[in-house]
Simulated assay, not measured.
Amino acid sequence: MLSDPFFYAVAIPAVILLGLAKGGFSGIGVVATPLLALAVSPVLAAAILLPILIVQDVVSVWAFRKTWDKGLLKLMLPAAAVGIGLGVALAAFVSTAAVELAVGLIAIVFALQRLWAERAVKVAEQVGTTAGRPWLGVLCGLATGFTSQIAHAGGPPFQIYVLPLRLPRDRFIGTSAVFFAVVNWMKVPAYLALGQLTPGVLATAGVLLPLAIASTWAGVWLVRRVPAEGFYRVIYVLLVAVGGKLAFDGVHGLLS
């Protein structure tokens, strides 16, 4: 188990951000791995966070267990599984920095376009998945699995397909919670095969678990107090911020 005080100085805010993301403020958790990477290697940071994410998934799925879209999951999860497999197979050949830069730029352009569209004309709310194009859902599911495995950045591709559907707030959060809970379990075999889930990693994650659970419940409490009509605007703004962070990390990685 890690005992470095600096590690916990960055791990505590990282876990809190993850909890808020799992509670409903989708996307901001992408900052967690880079924060931990200030104290340990990115590989070790990702390994420590995976058990924490799985526990947080339990909380978020339970909180929104009655509001999720079965059709979306049936469409996107099989593609995500393929994407995770491609990520494992191509990890040695694909630059994490390049993936981060590409995902970041796409997320920024998409979110800004949607914010402009919502400002120019009121978008009618649509319930369910009929407004989406199935082929695009499969493509985004594939990209979500791939980027989640390669760069722990699966949120933006998922949101690019799901956000324009204008699901009710709780259904959007519940669907995201169930989707990423399954995706995180899909990633476990790869981490085990690479020998990253060691007793020391699990012990370190265990120390942070009480904070992880508390911060996730705090996220659930806070997101339910955001007015429903303003929820999507908040998520689009967060997506711009997340995209900017990914793009910055990608450029930094490519130049270093």
Rank of each mutant, 00 (worst) to 15 (best):
S3P: 10
F248Y: 15
P168K: 03
T130H: 12
Q196W: 12
H152D: 07
L136H: 09
G85W: 03
V234R: 06
R133K: 06
A32L: 05
D57M: 06
W62R: 15
E118H: 11
A37I: 02
G24N: 12
G244W: 10
L18P: 00
V251S: 15
P199C: 03
F248I: 07
D57A: 12
L115M: 13
P13H: 07
V94P: 15
P156W: 07
V223A: 15
A205L: 02
A218V: 08
P210V: 01
G230P: 09
V55A: 14
A153R: 07
G155I: 07
T147M: 04
V15N: 06
L255A: 11
Q56D: 02
L208G: 08
L17I: 14
V40I: 10
V226S: 12
L105C: 08
V242P: 08
E100K: 15
G244Y: 15
L49E: 01
E229T: 14
P5Q: 13
G83Y: 05
A153C: 02
A177D: 10
L197S: 11
A97K: 09
K74H: 15
F64H: 11
Q196N: 12
G244P: 06
K66Q: 15
F146L: 13
L77Y: 04
P78M: 05
I108E: 02
A218R: 04
L208Q: 09
A111T: 00
T204N: 07
L38S: 05
P42G: 01
V88N: 01
T96K: 10
A124V: 12
Q113T: 14
K122C: 06
V30W: 04
T175G: 07
L105I: 14
G244Q: 10
G24H: 13
A111W: 09
